[in-house]
Design a protein around this nucleic acid. Structure first.
Lengths: 206, 206, 206, 206
DNA sequence: AATGAATGAGTTTTCATTCAT
DNA sequence: TATGAATGAAAACTCATTCAT
């Protein structure tokens, strides 16, 4: 990364933050470079001083957010806590992001998570899922979770639950209040982890 | 809706099917109207004989697929089966679509499900979630499920699990074999319904 | 001209009349062939059964109206009346067309009179002006009019006066009542012929 | 109106002048945006930097020309001259435009003056006629003109005469030499004002 | 660094015309 | 005759990107 003056770095941030807001509200493809520049209060030409293309702006948003996230998830995964607690903290981290940076989440969920284009450019997208899958698998090995289900699929289901809740907030389908995050987190963990739980498996009788 | 000759209806289908394939492979925004026409083997002008715009083609794809889906889900919801069985069948229907019409699912998942543009045009997108939520709530009322969790959030989590599995297939992240669908379905139901289940509730201690 | 069955001729008229209405309201370039067909209540393909192109429809409208007009003007020019009376009748004929076929006049004034394209195809457009110019010149020769002005220019001015009045009606700028036509005719003749008149200003008495 | 750099303003003019030439020779509807750009020697995209659409280019041409014209006509109307002299100067100004900017006149006459589309957008089109009508009416009040004719209709006739002369030049129907303008002006005033005149037909002596 | 004028490839859409039925 | 499905040339307009200043 090239060393830049403080003022320059400021402008870069300005553009990046503006891009997040614009992408969040209009979608990547529908957003024009001029929109971003206008939102940032700079001339659109300046964007090309800091980024090679509109695509690179999106990539950058993702990477900056994601790398931080990945670090934290890695730490959680490395902690000595129970699998259940680890899952809870992962969910908490992912859902909590919403309250702090809703627009960033909007962009991640809508423009990145399901886009094949970006998917190809960025392999890191699936890393959180992989962490979750490993946590579950470890929970199965330690006997904390029962082991009669596929941890890979279960990880996907767990992660999908998180993403859908985020998506619900993004699209305004579910109430998004002060304690909405906590409620969502609790429900998710309660329900899914109960399903994972080793013991008194529910006596399902058909 | 205008009455059309049989031959004309055929061409309309041709274009619609071609559009599904093209959107599935290149994404809506990246697909050109000419691509669709070429794939369908017709002149691009013909597309505008049947549809008002490229957008309307996407809308139509969604609506035709979705209305059929909604009918089936309504039937499931109205059946006298247990909540768990109903959920299983809903999941089965949603996941089963992948095997039968993968490209349609691709388009639904990538272009429609999370797109704010389409979302605004189409309120029906959330109906399956609502069905699921009602099924869960009813399960709680009958005592089949425990009632110490929020059925609305739980519905979202369940639906999210389904969508993420589909997404995994769409993006090629999880194996997609002959029995992948059945496996996914089983895991989903096993895990999540176990979490819902009334008895030996997990001893949650914070 | 090809002999046609009575029914066929009817359809042709239907289309032609519809075209007049449509051109009058939307202008030639802005009118689509489909608009004409719809207005006529036939399929747009049929138009090409009777006319070679959209252009030919406009040409036909012009020719059918104009040839009748030219015949009448020729008759007026050949009559033994005074120049002033001839001019009055020409003006009367041109302005009177408005009451009977406003849409035709609309099309003539707006789409044909000033269009270079049509102008080139149709030399007959200027024939009324030429008649007027000859009538004036003859009035000068007989001493009815003074001869110290250019009859060609005067003819143009006279004709221009007529056209502008029509244009005023077309564009809704001047009142268009029952007797508007007569009033316009009188003013035109009063004023302009008085200007042409050889001697002592016209004592206008009705 | 946005402040622009001198160089930018130059390019804007370049495009506007090119548009006048192109519209004058091919007509508005037949001219492509690319033609204008080519004539101006710029990329067609630049046109959209300065104007919102092809329509706006036409509007601008009209407005810029017309507002200047209206100012001058207002000045004439406000002058202490006789009605006849005022009419002469108005005619002179309108006809004189032809010698100076024939292409602008071509566009005004053919594309704007009688177009319903433009008419609706621009109410100012009729202002010169209104000035003429007021001048005539004032002439009637002062006794300079007889008052037994409708000044509104007379104004239209007068203006129509002017427009038709311009039209004759535009369409190449009347000779357009060095002194054609002066001749036309003289004939118009001679004839029409004589018709207006209160008393014994004008003894025109040069 | 910063601006915004300038470029032009690319896209949707329109619509006159043809033609099989 | 009559229909309307089918064609495809043409045109307006967009917008990411470049570059002179």
């Amino acid at each position: 990364m090239v060393e830049r003056s403080a003022g320059a770095e400021e402008k870069r941030r300005l553009i990046l933050d503006a891009a997040v807001r614009v992408f969040a509200h209009k979608g990547f493809h529908t957003s024009r470079v001029g929109d971003i520049a206008e939102e940032a209060g700079v001339a659109h030409g300046l964007l090309y001083h800091y980024f090679a293309s509109k695509d690179e702006v999106l990539d950058t948003i993702f990477r900056e957010t994601w790398s931080e996230l990945l670090t934290e998830i890695d730490e959680i995964e490395a902690s000595p806590e129970s699998a259940r607690d680890q899952l809870q903290r992962v969910a908490s981290r992912l859902l909590g992001g919403w309250r702090e940076h809703p627009d960033v989440i909007r962009v991640l969920v809508r423009e990145i998570a399901r886009s094949a284009e970006v998917q190809q450019r960025i392999g890191e997208l699936v890393k959180p899922i992989e962490s979750i899958q490993r946590i579950i698998a470890r929970g199965q090995q330690t006997g904390e979770f029962r082991d009669d289900f596929d941890s890979r699929l279960a990880g996907i289901v767990f992660y999908g639950g998180i993403e859908e809740v985020l998506s619900g907030w993004v699209l305004g389908q579910i109430p998004d209040g002060e304690d909405a995050v906590e409620a969502a987190e609790r429900t998710l963990i309660d329900v899914v982890c109960a399903g994972f739980a080793a013991t008194p498996a529910p006596t399902v009788e058909y």
